[in-house]
Design a protein around this nucleic acid. Structure first.
Lengths: 168, 168
DNA sequence: TTAAATGCAAAGTATTTGCATGCGA
DNA sequence: TCGCATGCAAATACTTTGCATTTAA
């Protein structure tokens, strides 16, 4: 009765194609997710649904959001990292990032045209910009060469372990 | 003997101006921070310094990074949020964000010129872009009006509590 | 001297996992 | 029926806080 939403239908399709089950919880979570505001957190969805469905678990919301990501229907704002990373703020401050979703490598670059264009667009909306952050996600040259092969992860030369949050 | 770094000197100045103390640990952490790679995590700095300074605590690294942020010398990649937020992926997918650092409000917008320019710059570096994320931080129109006054925080109409990570 | 800084251990958060039970296909 | 899904509780990972001790100013 509420499945008119194309997002929900796509999700249902994804589930059946993957041999997974379509449950009451999954449908309600997906529905609330597509109908609601953006930038929603797991906790927010949980509280929202909980008022109607007492027996819902926060864990299920997390698991369903993970499925939505796997289905390509949701994106997590925070590049799958569970810890914070820090940048020094130099004088020539604004720089942008190219992030390879396969190997995790991060390249920096600067581009004055981009920076000015961003500032101009913001200004036209009454916004005074103090900082810009552009992140371009995709496949880097090296990984594009390896193409079909599986993920050459862990090519950062660091002692710590970048742990993907969610995606197994 | 290693304080030639302007970043370290700025930090030292900040400390004395703020009536705080300049300690061996703070200087070493700041030095490593400014001398090292970018996108460094607290844990990485800790391991790196730990090899020379056995008695160093991870807690002190966290606390010093917080001070560096307060001094305006460091930026945390992950806008102070300790939890993940999710966006649905519609057909007209690429959208950007205007984030007010005073009230936390998030506005979305789209701009084809920006998107194309971003993709072009990435391509020129051998990068195949699958997703863009531009975040413009600054002061929104409403907050600019309130100007001198202190932070009208908490103007999101949501049940959850956006908790700043670090900044008290 | 004395307030601030340190380091340890413990407490918080956000998120994931183990396991017994429930339920869709 | 049968295996995937759920929900609870416990585990995990990152970060912060309480407190006794050390140290810079």
């Amino acid at each position: 009765m509420i499945d008119a939403d194309p997002g929900v239908r796509h999700f249902t399709d994804f589930l059946s194609r993957a041999g997974l089950k379509s449950t009451r919880q999954r449908e309600r979570i997906a529905h609330a997710f597509f109908a609601g505001r953006r930038h929603v957190s797991a906790e927010e969805l949980y509280h929202q649904l909980r008022s109607r469905d007492a027996g819902l678990g926060l864990v299920t919301v997390y698991r369903t959001l993970k499925l939505l990501r796997q289905a390509g229907l949701a994106t997590e704002r925070t590049f799958g990292e569970s810890y914070a990373r820090f940048d020094p703020n130099p004088a020539d401050w604004t720089h942008h990032h190219l992030i390879c979703t396969r190997c995790g490598k991060i390249q920096e670059f600067q581009d004055a045209t981009l920076r000015e264009l961003g500032a101009r667009v913001a200004r036209s909306r009454g916004f005074t910009v103090t900082e810009q952050r552009l992140e371009l996600y995709g496949i880097c040259r090296d990984c594009a060469r390896l193409d079909g092969r599986r993920t050459p992860r862990g090519s950062r030369g660091v002692p710590a372990r970048p742990r993907a949050r969610g995606v197994p």
